[in-house]
Computed example of a mutant assay.
Amino acid sequence: MSRNSLMSDGVTVRDAATAAVLRDGTEGLEVLLLRRHGGHVFGANAYVFPGGAVDDSDADAVLAARVSAGVDYARACLGETGRPLAFWLAAIRECFEEAGLLVGCSHLPAEIPAGERDALNAGDRSWADVAARLELRFALDDLVYFAQWTTPPGRPRRYATRFFAARAPEGQRAACDGHETVDHWWAGPAAALASHDRGEIEMMHPTRVTLERLCDYEDVESALAGLMADGTVSS
């Protein structure tokens, strides 16, 4: 699919990227869920993975030059799009913006100043500028591409979203941004599904299907290997 496609219902389908961030908890595999702000037009109050629309700036050559690994993997997965690296870089950016976590980085500073995330979210600093200031190097193959979901016709906003999975970075703490996201939960996949079944939380269908897939795995290593081996799912 091209960057943006105008569908028959007149709503532009925007490219998007999201990442299921995984960690090994005391009782098994856990995944990071963020609660979206209630004022959102799309997915208000739903518990989701960090993610959002792919920006033109995610295809910036300056960012691409900071990719240290995984270029061949990204092109093998999404070579038909003409800008495959942008989806991975958007997923990494969204994790930082919404959850405060830098996934998919082969090089990180010893300490990440909180002001960098704030400046990025406020639009005072570009993603390329933040990457340069923190001297980031991106390892795209640390993010496993496993699904694409397209919002069905009839919705006010529609997205063709690529789903990735990544290991949570050690030594970093997740924190919602207070604007796009208002709460975070490291949840066991089965526990999150049970909470949704009881009507305690809102959840969109692609999130639920992903959690059902994650129930098959006991830890991060097996989850990443299994999602990669199973190949991508499109819907």
Results as ranks from 00 to 15, higher is better:
229 A>K: 12
138 F>V: 00
67 V>Q: 09
152 P>R: 00
33 L>N: 00
26 T>K: 04
143 L>P: 11
81 T>S: 15
161 T>H: 00
34 L>I: 09
234 S>G: 08
169 P>C: 11
19 A>P: 07
228 M>K: 13
25 G>L: 03
49 F>Q: 03
91 A>P: 02
192 A>D: 08
159 Y>N: 02
142 D>V: 01
174 A>P: 13
9 D>F: 08
46 A>M: 12
71 V>P: 13
130 V>N: 08
192 A>C: 06
108 L>H: 10
188 G>M: 13
22 L>Q: 04
118 D>Q: 14
117 R>C: 00
67 V>P: 15
137 R>N: 00
25 G>V: 08
130 V>W: 06
191 A>M: 03
234 S>K: 14
99 A>E: 06
148 Q>Y: 01
164 F>I: 04
194 A>N: 10
16 A>Y: 12
118 D>Y: 07
70 G>E: 02
56 D>A: 09
90 A>C: 12
143 L>W: 06
128 A>W: 05
69 A>R: 15
109 P>D: 07
189 P>H: 11
174 A>L: 07
227 L>P: 05
35 R>F: 02
135 E>K: 08
42 F>D: 15
121 N>V: 06
92 I>P: 00
57 S>M: 10
167 R>K: 14
229 A>S: 09
143 L>D: 10
218 E>A: 13
43 G>W: 13
116 E>A: 10
153 P>T: 11
29 L>A: 02
171 G>S: 06
78 L>D: 11
84 P>A: 04
41 V>P: 03
6 L>F: 00
101 L>A: 06
151 T>W: 07
110 A>P: 02
161 T>C: 07
137 R>F: 00
61 A>R: 01
176 C>D: 14
169 P>W: 12
214 L>T: 10
233 V>K: 13
205 H>N: 12
87 F>W: 12
67 V>N: 14
41 V>F: 07
75 R>D: 10
112 I>G: 02
78 L>Y: 04
210 T>P: 07
189 P>Q: 08
48 V>A: 12
170 E>S: 07
162 R>N: 06
231 G>H: 08
201 I>D: 04
51 G>V: 11
198 R>S: 05
66 R>H: 06
34 L>G: 10
217 Y>I: 14
151 T>A: 08
174 A>Q: 09
207 T>W: 09
189 P>K: 04
59 A>D: 11
209 V>E: 14
31 V>P: 14
2 S>D: 09
99 A>I: 11
136 L>C: 07
100 G>Y: 01
92 I>S: 02
163 F>A: 08
102 L>T: 02
70 G>F: 11
4 N>E: 15
20 A>P: 13
129 D>E: 15
126 S>Y: 08
34 L>P: 13
125 R>A: 12
